[in-house]
C-alpha cells in the first residue's frame, strides 16, 4: 500500500512539466527516503535524478519499496487537471497495475480522482558517485534559462568556462559567435540574483545547447540553479526544492574527436 499526500499539487505539476519532454517513460521509486526517479533520455546523453523527500509530504505511507512505471506525458496530462493549490494524494495498492491521483480543492468542495495505468519499464539504475567538483556555480535560475535560450538561437553547442572571477558561456554558429560572462556577485537586492563561484581549478567544458535548454524547464522549481563541473565528468544542473528535495540533470560533455 502506497499513499502520499502533498498539499501543493503545483509542485508535482512543475516537476512533471520539467522532465516530460526529456524522458518519455520512467519508474518512480518509492521508499522510506522518498519518492524518486532516475532516468536517461532516449539518446543516453542526459540523466534526470529527482528526489521528493518523504518528510516533505503531509502524509507518507510506503509499506515496502515499490517501483511504478509511468508514461510521464500521461502523468503530466492528469496532473494538469489539478489546480496548483489542490492537495494531491498518490495511491497504489500492492500488486496493482494502476495508480490513482486524487485532487482536493482547498475548501474541500471538489474532489477528483484520476486512475492511470502503470507500465513495465526495463531501466537500469546507474550508480552516481558522490564527487568533489572542481567548480560550482550558483546563480539565478531564470538568468541561466535566459542565457541557454539566447545562446541556443546562435549555436548548437555551449562552452561553459568557470574561473574564480565568474562563469562564461560561449557559442559559435553559422551566423556568428556569442559570449556571456556572469561575474561573481553577492551584492544583490534579492538573494536569488546572486552569482556565487566555488572553484578549486578553472574548468571549461562543451555541451549540447538543446539539452541545457531542456533542463531549464525546471526553472519554476527554484530561484537559484547550481551548476557543478569537473573535467571528465558530466555537468550537474541542480534545482533545489525548498524542504522537498531536488531535481538534478546530468549531461555528458562533448569532446574533441
Amino acid at each position: 500500500m502506497l499513499e502520499l499526500r502533498l498539499t501543493q499539487a503545483g509542485l508535482l505539476k512543475k516537476v512533471l512539466e520539467s522532465i516530460k519532454d526529456l524522458v518519455t517513460d520512467a519508474n518512480f521509486d518509492c521508499s522510506a527516503t522518498g519518492f524518486s526517479l532516475q532516468a536517461m533520455d532516449s539518446s543516453h546523453v542526459a540523466l534526470v535524478a529527482l528526489l521528493l523527500r518523504s518528510d516533505g509530504f503531509e502524509h507518507y505511507r510506503c509499506d515496502h519499496n515499490i517501483s511504478m512505471g509511468m508514461n510521464l506525458g500521461n502523468m503530466a496530462k492528469m496532473l494538469r487537471c489539478a489546480s496548483d493549490d489542490d492537495t494531491v494524494t498518490i495511491k497504489a495498492d500492492d500488486g496493482s497495475d494502476t495508480v490513482t491521483f486524487m485532487f482536493e480543492s482547498p475548501s474541500q468542495d471538489k474532489i477528483s480522482d484520476y486512475e492511470m495505468k502503470l507500465m513495465d519499464i526495463d531501466s537500469e539504475h546507474l550508480g552516481i558517485p558522490e564527487a568533489e567538483y572542481q567548480a560550482i556555480v550558483r546563480m539565478s535560475a531564470s538568468e541561466f534559462a535566459r542565457i541557454c535560450k539566447d545562446l541556443g538561437t546562435i549555436g548548437d553547442t555551449v562552452i561553459i568556462s568557470v574561473t574564480k572571477e565568474g562563469v562564461q558561456f560561449s557559442t559559435k554558429g553559422d551566423i556568428g559567435t556569442a559570449n556571456i560572462i556572469c561575474r561573481k556577485n553577492t551584492a544583490v537586492d534579492k538573494k536569488e540574483e546572486a552569482t556565487v563561484i566555488e572553484m578549486a581549478e578553472p574548468v571549461s567544458l562543451t555541451f549540447a545547447s538543446r539539452y541545457l535548454i531542456a533542463f531549464t524547464k525546471a526553472t519554476p522549481l527554484a530561484g537559484q540553479v547550481t551548476i557543478s563541473m569537473s573535467y571528465d565528468m558530466p555537468i550537474v544542473v541542480e534545482y533545489k526544492m525548498e524542504t522537498m528535495g531536488y531535481m538534478r540533470f546530468y549531461l555528458a560533455p562533448k569532446i574533441e574527436e
Binding site: 543516453h44 540523466l47 546507474l126 558530466p234 574527436e257
Partner: peptide
Amino acid sequence: KLKQQVISRFFAPK
C-alpha cells in the same frame, strides 16, 4: 570535430 559522449561512459549500472 566534437563528439557527444554518453552517460554510461561515466556512471556504471548499479
